[in-house]
Design a binder for these strands. Structure first.
Lengths: 360, 360
DNA sequence: GCTGGCACTCGGTACAATCGAGTGCCAGCC
DNA sequence: GGCTGGCACTCGATTGTACCGAGTGCCAGC
């Protein structure tokens, strides 16, 4: 990175765009550096930052008056805001956005964290659920924010075997084991009371006919000749299919308590509590994360989020792929004033490693 | 309940016990009524309550000066505290304890809530996990506090059937279906790579030998003659047993966000956040609740809790029984300033209904 | 044993004075 | 033209003071 502050990498826009309300695509290099310094300072101190701080703490080589001028411009163009007249500046959502898009050099994770992650993913095999759960705890620990992991959709996984287990007269449990090690089950209540032999026959038919398909795309089973058996086969097949469709994808949330800890970072009273409540509604969270099906790592800052309750926070999300297919998403949820570099690095590394780990 | 305030139900202790530091087992009837009024008032207003409020808002028929005298006594004996000299009184843990033990008449749930509960438990059959999860949501909704439901321990349930499913070469999933509809699974990684036939043989042996036992008490399986099969049988049996022992009982927490909402009720900074963090550690919560294996409904108030982080809250817990055996626990976690009558009624009704519902 | 009365306490509020971090602007310098 | 030092100004935060009033403790009297 050049330390020469007089060589702008971009043609100046001068006064031409003044007053335009759309975000500037580019910024005078010094101003960009001022913006970056403000974001970085504000993220660590949580205090509005003044011109003097920037002038002395960075190697810009300009006086605070100059920084002030730049700040005025940055504010006019929407990157900064002033809580009140005689206070320093804080970044706006647009300011964070520019920072994330243009200024956040990716230094990767600090070595210690890198080792933590490596150790985590090389440790012994775990069941799918445990792995996902612990991954979300890992991410929360790395970033000190709430973290979210969405597991592979069960409806996309291939069925290995299906079984029927009688629990009580007339109540049967259909159990499907999927190729990724997950187990889906569904309770059947039928009028017809099958004999053990019929149940076994139905299970065999199911197992034979459904194995190899995905839950979302189960073939219509053929008849076996025995109407009771057929009824069970049909019912089990439908139950498993609707079960997979109805039940949202597996979701693991960790570190929600960090939101309460960071409460000061959320302006309005009780907005942290509303955020926590939102996180309790799994369906909503899954829908929210699934709604952002961008390729690669995605950042949603403040008001960029559609949900009202997310106006004061940012999401950093990355899908993870298993054998080339996107299998799920990992992400971090924190206040807009978060360390984006850290979060981006953590989410990126964890998503890659998780995908790799699921391939074995 | 007699409205005659001049007929104490208990012999007065007069000055005899003055200065004794152990809690009074009984209390002059009027003082008890004053205490009750203070608790009820404080629970609704969250403000220290003064003598005037009590004198006018209740039918004690005495002046505020008399109430003041009673309050002084109640404070001296440890039932009340004064945040500062010129403020009203608030109940101490001991005050709440007396209220819960002697003063909380059980009026049952309000009709509307009673109907909600009835409707909830008569609605269609659900899978065990869903039922427990929704029960905890129900309880959180009824009480407006965080709620906790511990499900039946898988280790105590009878095994219906065991299956082995090959996932990859050398990796096998052992799946046990339990009588209560739960499914336990465990990943086996073995050096020996069994053929399909051997896997089937092992599964058959497991199924035959383990069915009918509980996971905690699986019999030592007999040999089948084939060493590879035996290895799988042994490994699966051990894996299922240790899995059931290691994995804590199923836990469902709902309404944790209420804690953040009630943050004002928790004195020290960040104690609500610590509480939320504690709730994220399932193992800890299960141990905590299991540690209170009282018969019937139990209340733990403030410092009665062993965990430091629970000093500012109260737990209302009730076990639920299935066919005479205690199967699990439901409970509510809120600030010490909670509506105990409401919480007691809700926890009591829900625990009974949940037990009944699990019997069918 | 209850009550009215009264002095006292002390948190909360309102208001003024002060402080200082930070700004905007301008004239001057390079 | 752009940077800089200087300066007046703003305004939140802090401090100090006064005051109000809810609530208490206590006491003499009924």
């Amino acid at each position: 990175m050049p330390t020469d502050s007089t060589s702008p990498t971009v043609p100046k826009t001068d006064g031409i765009d003044d007053g335009e309300s759309f975000p500037q695509p580019q910024l005078d290099e010094r101003r960009a550096r001022v913006l970056r310094a403000i974001v970085e300072e504000y993220v660590t101190t949580a205090q509005p930052v003044g011109s003097q701080t920037i002038a002395t703490s960075t190697e810009l080589g300009v006086s605070s008056a100059t920084v002030r001028n730049d700040m005025t411009v940055l504010e006019r163009e929407g990157y900064l805001a002033q809580p009140h007249t005689s206070a320093g500046r804080i970044p706006t959502d647009q300011g964070y956005r520019f920072f994330v898009d243009h200024l956040a050099h990716a230094p990767g994770l600090p070595a210690a964290q890198r080792r933590t992650v490596a150790g985590f993913f090389t440790s012994a095999h775990r069941a799918l659920e445990d792995l996902l759960h612990e991954t979300s705890q890992l991410l929360a620990g790395l970033t000190h924010h709430a973290s979210v992991v969405i597991g592979p959709a069960p409806s996309a996984a291939e069925v290995r075997t299906v079984q029927l287990v009688g629990l009580q007269p007339g109540v049967v449990l259909a159990v499907a084991v999927l190729a990724n090690g997950a187990v889906e089950k569904s309770v059947l209540e039928l009028g017809a009371n099958a004999t053990d032999a019929e149940l076994t026959a139905a299970a065999a038919a199911l197992d034979q006919q459904l194995s190899g398909s995905t839950l979302a795309d189960l073939p219509e089973p053929g008849g076996t000749g025995n109407p009771v058996v057929d009824e069970y086969v049909q019912a089990a097949r439908n139950a498993l299919r609707t079960h997979a469709a109805d039940h949202h994808d597996p979701l693991y949330v960790s570190g929600a308590s960090r939101i309460a800890l960071e409460q000061a970072a959320f302006p309005s009273e009780g907005s942290a509590a509303r955020l926590l409540e939102l996180l309790e509604h799994q369906v909503v969270v899954v829908a929210l994360v699934r709604g952002i099906l961008d390729q690669g790592i995605t950042v949603r800052i403040g008001a960029e989020n559609e949900y009202e309750d997310l106006r004061d926070c940012s999401l950093v999300l990355a899908p993870y792929a298993v054998e080339g297919e996107i299998a799920g998403t990992v992400g971090v949820l924190g206040p807009t004033r978060m360390d984006y570099q850290r979060a981006l690095a953590a989410v990126s590394v964890v998503s890659q490693q998780l995908g790799r780990s699921l391939e074995s």
